[in-house]
Design a protein around this nucleic acid. Sequence first.
DNA 1: ACATCTTTGTGACAATTTTCACGACATAAG
DNA 2: CTTATGTCGTGAAAATTGTCACAAAGATGT
Lengths: 215, 215
Amino acid sequence: MSEQNKIPQATAKRLPLYYRFINNLHIQGKLRVSSKELSEAVKVDSATIRRDFSYFGALGKKGYGYNVEYLLEFFRKTLDQDEKTPVALIGVGNLGTAFLNYNFTKNNNTKIEMAFDADPNKVGTEIGGVPIYHIDELEQKLSEVQAAILTVPLAEAQNITERLIKSGVTGILNFTPARITVPEGVRVHHIDLSVELQSLVYFMKHYPLDTDEEA
Amino acid sequence: MSEQNKIPQATAKRLPLYYRFINNLHIQGKLRVSSKELSEAVKVDSATIRRDFSYFGALGKKGYGYNVEYLLEFFRKTLDQDEKTPVALIGVGNLGTAFLNYNFTKNNNTKIEMAFDADPNKVGTEIGGVPIYHIDELEQKLSEVQAAILTVPLAEAQNITERLIKSGVTGILNFTPARITVPEGVRVHHIDLSVELQSLVYFMKHYPLDTDEEA
DNA sequence: ACATCTTTGTGACAATTTTCACGACATAAG
DNA sequence: CTTATGTCGTGAAAATTGTCACAAAGATGT
Ligand SMILES: NC(=O)c1ccc[n+]([C@@H]2O[C@H](COP(=O)([O-])OP(=O)(O)OC[C@H]3O[C@@H](n4cnc5c(N)ncnc54)[C@H](O)[C@@H]3O)[C@@H](O)[C@H]2O)c1
Ligand SMILES: NC(=O)c1ccc[n+]([C@@H]2O[C@H](COP(=O)([O-])OP(=O)(O)OC[C@H]3O[C@@H](n4cnc5c(N)ncnc54)[C@H](O)[C@@H]3O)[C@@H](O)[C@H]2O)c1
């Protein structure tokens, strides 16, 4: 399952982005695409795109570009788009509710299968077709789920994290400001919206000529 | 205003994070802190922290560490925590509503001053104390505002972006999947939640031993 | 068939970022 | 005063990431 040929992390982070735009091209009926065109669409230098693709071998044809259908098929396999990864969401508050209402499933190999909250008014209801269980049932319900979205209050973050890991979760998308502690082998991506906003303002003031920056 | 001594971008992105944790320490009444302690709290290598701080001169004392109050004061000035930057939010849907309900102002030099939407049912109301105007009033109301949070549907993103820039906005926090095109001098940070989730899953499967990763 | 045009894949290089490791100084204790 | 311990700031090295620029391969047009 896990490749031994190590793709650079920076490349790996761009793959889902490439996938989405290639999929768009396919839907639009385009048959081929050059690294230059793709570059304008995703705002990544064309040389970087060619380099990224080249880690997977020769996907294109010189003088022609890339065949959209072939590329799409390739990325579908590489990103495991066929098997849906079940995801749990913990904390159905402002943010959590927004995510449940959003259809992450479109164009995506992930699906939020269940949500948990401590509020008895929320437990037993559904949002966006996702059932909400009581947090006490976490260990019991989380059997197949390996990935979790964490949108609980700051004070609960570490505690819930430990329960998630005990239940077999190996990946967490953490929206709380807490920098949670996890054992080796558990992957955490922090998305810290306050930091993002402050960081944007800092760059606006101190780097006035630059333009684009991945979050 | 803008420094000529260039702080590395990677460092600049960590500054708001440092600021928040130093502030926490101050609230807890701690008088001093070492790079090692801070490292455990923010999950950044201690050498990296020392290096980051050193771009601003010698903030610490050898054999002692950093004085929390001094550090806090220093970061407050560096991150312009005194002057609040006004921000506008465009698109009061699922995500936009969550952001309006969240108090970004806490511990933060930014404040969402106004919001815009096309839906007449939302126009004229308030969420979290923030007034919602009609999108037609954008140009008229946006006089002081230089930063915007974009949470409109994909199809509207580029169009609204252009109107924002015409109105003087120089920084955009973009939550739509569109990679918007902007002229030089306008800063865009993309936060692409579908990509983040797919990327997490990819890393879980292909880099099973790594642990932590900034979004 | 041939000349011309396109675009890939990549060696070489440049830039950025992280990490190592140690001298220098601070503090505390005896 | 001396020693033991702790911690910074930083030169140097390593690791990672991005970019340039071009030969090679194939596409296109006449
Ligand atoms: N809303 C935003 O725009 C925003 C922005 C930045 C960061 N955040 C962070 O995201 C997190 C969630 O924010 P929010 O605005 O949605 O908060 P919220 O208070 O609206 O939602 C938190 C939810 O978690 C539930 N909860 C509380 N304790 C729980 C527990 N032990 N187990 C399960 N559920 C529990 C609550 O019932 C509530 O529904 C917070 O950590 C916040 O700091 C939110
Ligand atoms: N909700 C999520 O969890 C989520 C996740 C990933 C990405 N996104 C992206 O974030 C964006 C917003 O998502 P959402 O779920 O909040 O969508 P939404 O449909 O709930 O909200 C969009 C809002 O924008 C308003 N709007 C439409 N046209 C407008 C215009 N021309 N000017 C001003 N306002 C206008 C609508 O009235 C609506 O209130 C979308 O681009 C979506 O792809 C959302």
